[in-house]
């Protein structure tokens, strides 16, 4: 078990360091790159917990898709770093105040947290036996039986969000030339090419 605990401290140490770097880097692109390192170490922690499916999902979804979009956007925006830093001292008290409020709220919630004695049993009830099947199958069996309506509803929410963003950004712009494949393919030789006999010395109009 030495290796497992060493790995845990390695992953969590790097995760914390890189999370701090996300905030303290001056360059936003470097921040995103540190964020990706944080995701990786979180995935490593999932693997240590025996949740290999979640670890892979974290990498595929967050690192492979979400962080790529972040990087894309941050690179395209020409952010002036000094401009962002300008008002730093001015806004610091407000930020610190909000931080303190959140901290107090969290402390209150955590302090007043009481776990029902049945909660643990209730939570474990639908879990299939992990020693019998691997956790991909276990997750699938829970998600598509017990929680199928919630799962579908989550999908619908995402679909609505996607349609909404498309509707908001789609506008017909005049003068945009688009390729119409079916028109190109259905064009006949007779419509486009005409063979003309040209009389010598006269030409054609």
């Amino acid at each position: 078990m030495i290796i497992a605990s060493l790995a845990f401290y390695l992953f969590s140490f790097i995760a914390v360091i890189s999370a701090l770097n996300v905030i303290f880097q001056r360059n936003p692109v470097h921040s995103v790159l540190w964020l990706i390192l944080t995701f990786f170490n979180a995935a490593g922690l999932f693997v240590l917990l025996g949740a290999e499916f979640l670890a892979m999902l974290l990498i595929v979804v967050y690192v492979g898709a979400v962080a790529v979009l972040f990087l894309f956007v941050v690179m395209m925006l020409d952010i002036n770093v000094t401009m962002i830093r300008e008002g730093f001292m001015k806004y610091l008290p407000v930020g610190a105040f909000i931080g303190v409020v959140l901290l107090v709220e969290l402390a209150l919630v955590y302090g007043g947290w009481a776990m029902s004695p049945q909660a643990e049993a209730l939570r474990l009830a639908p879990t299939p036996d992990i020693t019998q099947i691997d956790n991909t199958k276990a997750l699938g069996q829970i998600m598509y039986t017990q929680y199928v309506y919630v799962f579908q509803a989550a999908g619908l929410v995402l679909l609505v969000a996607m349609i909404g963003s498309i509707v908001l950004t789609l506008r017909r712009r005049p003068g945009v030339r688009k390729q119409n494949i079916s028109v190109q393919v259905s064009r006949r030789k007779e419509e486009t090419v005409e063979v003309v006999k040209v009389p010598t010395g006269k030409g054609i109009a």
Binding site: V29, L33, I36, E52, F53, M56, L57, I59, V60, V63, G64, A65, V68, L71, F72, M75, D134, N135, T136
Partner: peptide
């Protein structure tokens, strides 16, 4: 021999874009 070998391959191949984007930037 991991249980989620195919997901692992998919994850690794989806990371390939980073090398190129980092180089370009």
């Amino acid at each position: 021999d991991i249980n989620v070998g195919m997901l692992y391959l998919f994850a690794v191949s989806s990371l390939g874009v980073y090398g190129i984007v980092m180089a370009g930037w």
